[in-house]
Every structure is written in structure tokens, then in C-alpha cells.
Design a protein around this nucleic acid. Structure first.
Lengths: 113, 113
DNA sequence: CGATTACTTAGGGACATGGCTAAGTTTGAC
DNA sequence: GTCAAACTTAGCCATGTCCCTAAGTAATCG
């Protein structure tokens, strides 16, 4: 499970940055070159490339060079583990809510020990 | 939209750490005190409290003191923005896939300029 | 072939993160 | 009232993140 955890780490931290989420949103409208992607982001190119690298390491995008241009595309299936984890948690959580009074009962018992 | 972005930053980066995800999973089974939560995590208490703080700042958990014990509970609805963003993206992405040939067409036109 | 474009590499600086120990503070138990 | 439990605060250190500039490489254009 450790490897799987690592993948979630990469995924969630990749998503935890507005620049990177913006890149993903832009790529959702279709593939683009590095400079096309960088244009709206007031940032030096090497800094921007760092974000692309993080996204690629998380498996969220893929890229290949065509001549001197690097084309980036989405890897849509990469989001699945993140979505799965979230909905799994959500499901357990809402299940618990139905039995919240269990907690209150236990709590009272504990404090009376 | 900046504030909303910030909330997503906090959420996703909070989720991007295995210790913190483990805390959430544990809390999914019901509320717990700080030391109960910390027990399985070979880590000094102040370090562990740092993680709880991050989770609380992200709105994922709430806590209150009962005597000298701090009880933590989940704030289940806090995941919603993250899930919404993910499924929104996923939807746009899959929409694009149906029209992937558009890109190829455009690409050929571009390269022939 | 010389210039320009589109990255790429190298290196550095400020601040955040994730861990630690040591020393409080507040309650609850005796 | 004393003492132990359960945090809490303060402060430190190593590493990571996110940004920068400067200089290098590779591919196209004129």
C-alpha cells in the first residue's frame, strides 16, 4: 500500500497549487506547447517548467517533443485514484453520521470510568 | 475566485500527506482525542499536532477541549470542493476525448502554415 | 551559416514544511 | 495539595518548494 500512498501524495500535492490546476484546466481544452501554456502565467520559463515536471511526475500530463517544441497532453485516467480515495472516505464518513449517537454513548461510558 | 482557489490549495495539500490521510481515515470511524490519534504514528506530539493544525485549517476536522483532552471530529462536507473540482475536470476531459481528432486536424493545419 | 525561437540546465535565495527536544500550562486523580 | 496526564508553546534544524537570473543547446528561418 506504500506505493499507492506515494501516488496519492504526488497527485494531491500536484493539485494543491493554483498554477498547476490552471495548467490542467487549460489542457482540458486540448493539447498545447510549453510556451502556449506558460503565456498566461506571469512567471519565468524555468519556474513554469518546474510545475509541468510536477504534473508529469504525478502522471497527470504527458509530453513529447516535436522539433524544438514540447507538446503537453492530459492523462485523464490519472485522477482516478484521487477521486476513488475521496469518494471512499466520503462514503465511510456519511455512514458514520447515521450512527453518531454511538459516539455520544461511548463517550459517556468512557468519562464514567 | 481567488478565495475559492485558496481553499482548494489548503484542501489538496492537506490531503497530500500520508500521515494526514491516515488521521482522516481513523476519524472516519469516529471522533478521537489527540493522543488516541497520535498513538499509531511514531512521531513526537508537537510534530503530530502540526498535522492536526493543517487539517483544521483546511476545514477537514474540528476540535474542542473537554477538560485537558482535545477531541477531534471530521467535518465531512469539507471534501465537497475537492470532489467538485475533480469531477468537473474529469467531465471536461472526457468531453474532449470524443473530439481528439479535432486536435490532430488543427495540428496538421498549424504545421502547414 | 547566422540569427531567432523554444526550451533546458545550472545555480541560488527566500520561505514553508516536517521533524525534533525542552519547558511550560491546565486538569483530573489521589 | 501534590503529582501525573494531556496537551501546548518555544525554538531549532534539515529538507523541500517556488521563484529568480544567466547561460547553454537544439531546431528552424532567412
Amino acid at each position: 500500500m506504500a506505493k499507492f500512498d506515494m501516488q496519492l501524495d504526488l497527485l494531491f500535492t500536484a493539485l494543491g497549487d493554483p498554477t498547476r490546476r490552471a495548467i490542467l484546466s487549460r489542457l482540458a481544452r486540448g493539447p498545447a506547447s510549453v510556451s502556449e501554456l506558460a503565456a498566461p502565467h506571469d512567471m519565468a520559463l524555468p519556474s513554469f517548467m518546474g510545475h509541468l515536471k510536477r504534473l508529469e511526475e504525478a502522471g497527470l500530463i504527458a509530453s513529447h517533443k516535436q522539433g524544438r517544441v514540447r507538446i503537453c497532453t492530459l492523462a485523464p485516467q490519472a485522477l482516478t485514484p484521487a477521486q476513488d480515495w475521496l469518494s471512499e472516505q466520503r462514503q465511510i464518513w456519511s455512514g458514520r453520521l447515521d450512527r453518531f449517537d454511538d459516539y455520544v454513548t461511548r463517550l459517556v461510558q468512557e468519562t464514567q470510568k
